[in-house]
């Protein structure tokens, strides 16, 4: 097991080098010049030349690449062209927001998707099955910016049940430490803030969790249906076992591997930042920030951000792979 983990972590290195090369080439080869973008209508040739020189953009590409790799190996991702803030600081400030939102979104997705899928599978072709699969289909195809705006309009503007956007209300006394607000407020025993933070999380988490919820529900249903047709399920029923025991102990456990795979993949995707949800709900996370950086041709931020995302994605996948062994003892890692 340990050997396997080490092997997988070592495999991360070539992946990251590959990602670094590809990202570097893509961002430098697409048209667009950060100096020009930064100066906008005020760009004069002299100012552009000075700025390009300062950013090191006048050097040949291979020299820029060499400099980039050298800095990267020292753990230095450079400074943002736009803000002059170190890229690592920017990522540290924004990733926790994305992590927190993704976490609650996936909780919602699993909490609703898995039971709905199970229930639909054991009542195959019932009205609930049909209805939930129609809802799931809608959920998969729902444009999130529309769903988000409707949520805000209905639950914040009309009904006033939830705050419309952002992570925390104005005027609440709270000092972030790790930028994981839920964790920070618990550490500080600041329960006023905690309640407000959770209150702010509800709408964006549901909006962001809707698509994964739908995918998970459909996967749970089909995986369960497959298992429920197996002989040993028939045998279990024939032995006179309780229906509850058969479904949860015999069937669900065996159906779990593909469900975990989907949950893990979805979580990995969410961690890359949800551009639409973050935009609509003014969530200061990674997704919106990276897209803005791409528009501004903020090379260091785009490179650092994607590299970071690739690492997170690979790690999440590793955790998913390891968790298979927990639910299915037949799977072992050498």
């Amino acid at each position: 097991m340990i050997n396997y983990i080490i092997k997988r972590l070592l495999a991360l290195i070539p992946i990251l080098i590959g990602v670094a090369v590809i990202v570097f080439l893509i961002v430098h080869l697409i048209p667009g010049d950060p100096a020009q973008t930064m100066l906008g209508e005020r760009a004069t040739d002299a100012a552009l030349a000075r700025l390009r020189e300062q950013m090191g953009l006048n050097d040949p590409l291979y020299i820029q690449f060499w400099r980039y790799i050298k800095d990267l190996l020292r753990g230095d991702m450079g400074r943002s062209i736009m803000s002059n803030n170190p890229v690592i600081t920017e990522l540290q400030a924004r990733f926790p927001a994305t992590l927190e939102l993704s976490f609650f979104a996936i909780i919602f997705a699993v909490g609703v998707g898995v039971p709905a899928g199970i229930f639909a599978s054991i009542n195959q072709n019932s009205w609930f099955d049909n209805l939930s699969m129609v809802i799931a289909l809608m959920g998969v195809s729902m444009p999130i910016f529309w769903l988000g705006l409707m949520f805000i309009w209905l639950f914040a503007v009309q009904l006033g049940w939830f705050p419309p956007s952002s992570r925390l209300g104005v005027g609440i006394d709270f000092t972030p430490i790790t930028n994981l607000y839920v964790v920070d407020s618990i550490i500080q025993l600041n329960f006023t803030a905690l309640v407000d933070i959770l209150h702010h999380l509800v709408l964006p988490a549901i909006a962001l969790g809707t698509i994964p919820m739908a995918i998970i529900a459909r996967m749970t249903r089909s995986s369960m249906l497959e298992v429920l047709r197996k002989d040993y399920i028939r045998t279990a029923f024939a032995k006179g076992l309780q229906r509850k025991v058969v479904i949860f102990k015999h069937a669900l456990k065996n159906a779990l591997v593909p469900i975990i795979t989907v949950v893990g993949l979805q979580f990995g995707v969410l961690l890359g930042g949800a551009v639409m949800t973050e935009t609509i709900f003014s969530w200061p996370g990674l997704g919106k920030y990276l897209v803005d950086a791409i528009y501004a041709r903020d090379f260091p931020v785009v490179q650092g951000g994607i590299l970071f995302f690739a690492t997170v994605f690979v790690l999440v996948n590793l955790i998913v792979d390891l968790s298979y062994a927990l639910v299915d003892p037949r799977i072992q890692y050498e």
Binding site: F145, G160, T279
Partner: peptide, 20 residues
């Protein structure tokens, strides 16, 4: 004074309507 970043125009307008 609190300057809040609310990137989406429609969402920002809804914030104004809901009084936040």
């Amino acid at each position: 004074i609190v300057f809040r970043s609310i990137p989406d125009n429609s969402a920002r307008f809804m914030e104004l309507q809901s009084g936040t």
